[in-house]
Design a binder for these strands. Sequence first.
RNA 1: GUCCCCUUCGUCUAGAGGCCUAGGACACGUCCCUUUCACGGACGCGACACGGGUUCGAAUCCCGUAGGGGACGCCA
Length: 469
Amino acid sequence: MSVVTRFPPSPTGFMHVGNARTALFNYLYARRHGGKFLVRIEDTDRKRHSEEAVQVIFEGLEWMGLEYDGEALSQFAGMGRHAEVAHEMLKAGKAYYCYCSPEELEAMRETAKAEGRSQFYDRRWRDRDPSEAPQDIKPVVRIKAPLEGETTINDVVQGAVTVAHDQLDDFILLRSDGTPTYMLSVVVDDHDMGVTHILRGDDHLNNSFRQKLIFDAMGWTLPVFGHLPLIHGPDGGKFSKRHGAQSVREYKELGYLPEAFCNYLLRLGWSHGDDEIISREQAIEWFDLEHIGRSPARFDFAKLDSLNAHYIKEARPERLLECSREFYKERHGLELSDIAVERITLGIEELKARSKTLLQFVDESAFYARSIPYAFDEKALALLGESKAILAALEDELESLEPFTGESIQNLCQKIAGDLAEGKLGKVAMPLRAAVTGTTVSPSIFGACAVLGRKETCARIRFAVQQGK
RNA sequence: GUCCCCUUCGUCUAGAGGCCUAGGACACGUCCCUUUCACGGACGCGACACGGGUUCGAAUCCCGUAGGGGACGCCA
């Protein structure tokens, strides 16, 4: 039997990290077994549906590199078929019309709550004669859930889970306007699409029992279920806005590489021995259901950072620059010129080694992309003010330094430090850094000057000396 | 409230009765490197929720307790 998995997001306007992981696992499992990974947009609720929200999902999948098979389906499009199934169940006596008014339902809900029961509908229309139906109420269609016994589902993640039938209510299949509910639609779609494995969030575990009722009523084979524990925020509570980033798009905007994000998500709830760095190829080869954890995990940005730092180091310069382009613009108003690209590429090894995120990479390499005049931060300005003589001497010597390399520049600074600063290299290097980069934090300043070249370095020093207070 | 699920270092986890004086990664601490901030290197700190069983032997199996999470819609 060939594997078919699916990712069924509802278009809420963003893609939650939990959904992202669900998508990843489904993708990996399908690829691992040479099966199909399908996407279905759960858009039956038209009030909450919008095209932009759907786009956000595709954007997220694309960024993560999760290619799906065939066309993404719209659940909305299958509503007619879903309703048909409900009517079949009606005909087969496995469902019935219920004429309760919202007020009646509300009253039942109150009573049930007071009595501590989890289901509230008292099945008053289950065996009632349709001739008693009120004329002014449009009925809903409810399933006839079993009254006695229990059902066990062998969840591949959670193990055998048993629920007593008195916990299952006669839930609604068709709303009073004739449209199918989610519970019906998923089952029909999953069956029609030939889905063999359903990997989804833990919050659906209880729904599985209801869905099994429909599968059974229609005589359809039940897919394999696997319920993944939820992802919690760093404080162990629900993952919310205050934790930083809930949606996939935000991670991109925070300067994370998709491979780092996916690697992190993969290890959150799944393991392969002691392996931490796992490439996409490796993940496809290794992924299995047996090693999915059963307990919820907290999201840890520090670990994501370290993974991101790793993948930044591995990334090719062109790719890094490509992913960073928009950040130079957004954060520094810089459009990367050819010369900027050339300089950054020359200094990239050190830049990569220092960066945990693309944002940091961009901030620390921005000085390469700038040209005179540029601004200095406060600390840099102060340094310039007290080091004019040193900078002037340095500039003078730099004009004729041969060769113009990181090493020779360092030696020169050493010499000037000996002459003018009691041998303290920092007294020369720091002002030079302030002059050339406009800040007090940067990669190795000698190497940076070599990358900039003699002409640019000297020009920057002259410019800086004029700015110093 | 009712039902379901979960519980190994601060965090993610390895572990499927003896290989465990419990391993790895991130974080943290100390030291080294050093022109800044980092990177890197070395070393270190640090956990089987609790209580009962079962067994020659339990992190691993069973039962309770506590704690955490989830579900209880004409939402998905």
